[in-house]
Design a protein around this nucleic acid. Sequence first.
DNA 1: AGTTGGACCTGACTGC
DNA 2: TGCAGTCAGGTCCAAC
Length: 276
Amino acid sequence: MPELPEAETIRRQLSSEIMGRRITGVQVLRASTIRRHRRAEEFAGLLMGRTVQAVGRRGKAVVLGLDGTTVVVHLGMTGQLVIAPAGEPLDRHTRLYLDLDDGRRLLFIDQRTFGDVAAYPETDWRRIPDLARYGPEPLRPAFSLAYLRQTLPRRRAKIQAVLMDQHFVAGIGKIYADEISYAAGLHPDRRANTLSEAEMRRLVRAAKSVLRRAIHHGGTSAADEKYVDAYGNNGGFQLLLNAYQRTGEPCRRCGEPIARIPMNGRGAHYCPCCQR
DNA sequence: AGTTGGACCTGACTGC
DNA sequence: TGCAGTCAGGTCCAAC
């Protein structure tokens, strides 16, 4: 699943590859990919002829800053943003692509079609509802012990559910919720409002360090993951996972088998011995 | 306002 | 061999 580290890896690569490029063509191959727009022509009109001035990220979303337009790419579960030469045959799950003025294409490929691409005639992110509703970036100072102290007492939900709530903090999904809970030594079932001061501090530190390490390793391409970076390559963090998809394998800290429990319609992986 | 569960979607896998 | 059923999870929506 593309989460913050995967989106950030793609952002960095795209930033060095397509900055300054002009969009010379817009092809929408599946209408539901631009579901926030009424018509494909409206979407294309906002991109056509414009130049990429910045490549950003907010939570799990990759954001293209054009002159006068902001393009928000939600990768969903299986979304990929890949650079390829214009002549290359298309993957059958290609949903949309942009032709660039250097003869290359930016392809949006998405097997399960949960992803979407939206364009807004606005360059100020704070005025794009899509982005404004997100909680703080976990790697920014705003995501702090003080923030948890202020918000968690009101949250009765399980800490894993709160970590994945994009309004609480942006960019964390299943993989990193499992990894962060593990690193913080917190049982995924713990109610958010029962965390002690020390546990909140551990949670903030764990979130930042897990996400930084995952970015450093180019994100996670786990067993049945479709994640690839902008060059079509796998990430490397799957080799360093401690909990996610390690059911039955020994905990790297204590040797106890990693367990998996139902969690709000999903599964949570954790070490019954190290996480309390 | 916060919380929960269902729906969406497709390919891989399981079991009969 | 074939086919129905299950699972995976990001996000939205309805209901409490």
